[in-house]
Amino acid sequence: WKVTVKGVEYTFDNPEEAKKFAEELAKKKGGQIHYKDGEFQVH
């Protein structure tokens, strides 16, 4: 499971962890999460 933040990729074994990480980042940066092709992208 991948989380991509401004072109930087983070990989997680667990989808729950990936989702949590993406949500935290989106909150911090005031961005939005897009889920696409099996990965979370924070913009």
Score class of each variant (00 low, 15 high):
5 V>G: 03
38 G>K: 12
40 F>G: 04
21 F>K: 01
31 G>K: 03
25 L>E: 12
35 Y>A: 07
16 E>A: 11
15 P>S: 08
31 G>I: 08
25 L>R: 02
25 L>F: 09
17 E>G: 05
2 K>H: 08
12 F>V: 00
16 E>G: 09
19 K>A: 09
30 G>N: 12
3 V>K: 00
19 K>C: 14
15 P>Q: 14
14 N>I: 02
25 L>H: 07
10 Y>F: 11
35 Y>P: 05
37 D>Q: 02
34 H>F: 12
28 K>V: 12
2 K>D: 02
39 E>D: 06
33 I>S: 04
43 H>F: 09
5 V>A: 11
27 K>W: 06
34 H>S: 13
1 W>R: 07
40 F>N: 03
19 K>L: 14
30 G>P: 05
15 P>T: 03
33 I>L: 10
11 T>M: 14
16 E>Q: 10
27 K>I: 10
22 A>V: 07
12 F>P: 00
1 W>I: 13
13 D>V: 06
18 A>W: 03
1 W>F: 11
42 V>R: 02
19 K>D: 02
4 T>P: 00
40 F>Y: 11
15 P>F: 15
4 T>Y: 05
15 P>G: 08
42 V>Y: 05
25 L>S: 06
21 F>D: 00
8 V>Q: 12
8 V>D: 07
30 G>H: 09
23 E>G: 02
24 E>K: 08
11 T>N: 12
26 A>Q: 07
37 D>S: 01
21 F>W: 06
6 K>M: 15
16 E>T: 11
13 D>K: 07
32 Q>G: 08
5 V>P: 00
2 K>E: 03
20 K>W: 07
3 V>S: 01
9 E>H: 06
9 E>W: 02
42 V>L: 05
20 K>Y: 07
38 G>P: 05
38 G>Q: 10
20 K>E: 10
15 P>R: 15
39 E>F: 06
4 T>H: 04
24 E>L: 09
31 G>Y: 11
38 G>D: 04
19 K>V: 07
19 K>E: 07
18 A>V: 01
35 Y>M: 10
1 W>K: 05
8 V>I: 12
22 A>R: 03
38 G>T: 04
12 F>M: 00
3 V>M: 01
36 K>A: 13
17 E>T: 08
39 E>M: 07
2 K>R: 10
13 D>I: 05
34 H>Q: 09
26 A>L: 11
42 V>P: 06
12 F>D: 00
1 W>E: 03
29 K>F: 15
9 E>P: 02
38 G>A: 04
11 T>G: 04
13 D>P: 08
23 E>S: 03
11 T>W: 15
28 K>S: 13
6 K>C: 15
17 E>F: 04
8 V>E: 12
37 D>C: 09
25 L>Y: 12
5 V>F: 15
13 D>F: 06
43 H>W: 05
41 Q>E: 13
40 F>D: 04
8 V>G: 05
33 I>C: 10
11 T>C: 14
34 H>G: 05
9 E>S: 13
32 Q>M: 09
19 K>N: 03
35 Y>L: 09
32 Q>Y: 14
23 E>K: 05
23 E>P: 00
9 E>M: 09
22 A>H: 02
4 T>D: 02
34 H>L: 10
19 K>Q: 12
25 L>M: 13
24 E>H: 10
33 I>A: 03
29 K>V: 15
27 K>G: 09
39 E>Y: 07
29 K>L: 15
23 E>V: 09
41 Q>W: 09
39 E>A: 07
41 Q>C: 13
18 A>F: 05
22 A>I: 08
35 Y>R: 06
37 D>W: 00
11 T>H: 15
36 K>G: 10
19 K>R: 14
37 D>R: 00
28 K>T: 11
14 N>K: 06
36 K>V: 14
28 K>D: 13
29 K>Q: 14
16 E>K: 09
6 K>E: 15
14 N>V: 02
7 G>F: 03
36 K>Y: 13
40 F>K: 03
30 G>K: 08
35 Y>G: 07
12 F>A: 00
12 F>N: 00
3 V>W: 00
41 Q>R: 06
41 Q>G: 04
17 E>L: 08
37 D>E: 09
14 N>R: 05
33 I>W: 06
39 E>L: 02
43 H>T: 14
18 A>H: 01
21 F>R: 01
6 K>S: 14
14 N>A: 05
42 V>T: 04
27 K>D: 09
28 K>N: 12
33 I>V: 14
26 A>D: 03
39 E>K: 05
22 A>S: 03
36 K>Q: 12
25 L>W: 11
41 Q>P: 06
34 H>C: 13
13 D>A: 09
39 E>P: 02
11 T>E: 10
19 K>G: 04
28 K>A: 14
7 G>C: 08
22 A>Q: 03
26 A>M: 08
10 Y>P: 00
1 W>C: 14
7 G>M: 02
20 K>A: 12
26 A>G: 04
16 E>V: 11
25 L>C: 15
17 E>N: 07
29 K>C: 15
31 G>R: 03
3 V>R: 00
37 D>A: 01
30 G>M: 08
19 K>W: 13
2 K>A: 03
5 V>H: 15
18 A>P: 00
16 E>C: 14
8 V>F: 12
9 E>R: 04
23 E>Q: 10
31 G>D: 06
30 G>E: 06
35 Y>S: 08
26 A>H: 04
4 T>A: 02
23 E>M: 09
6 K>N: 15
25 L>K: 03
8 V>H: 11
18 A>R: 01
31 G>M: 14
21 F>C: 12
38 G>N: 12
26 A>S: 07
27 K>N: 10
33 I>Y: 04
41 Q>Y: 09
33 I>D: 06
4 T>W: 06
14 N>H: 07
41 Q>L: 11
2 K>Q: 07
43 H>N: 11
28 K>P: 06
41 Q>V: 13
22 A>E: 03
22 A>F: 04
20 K>D: 07
3 V>Q: 00
11 T>Y: 15
15 P>K: 15
43 H>K: 12
23 E>L: 09
6 K>T: 11
8 V>T: 08
14 N>Y: 06
12 F>H: 00
16 E>Y: 12
37 D>T: 01
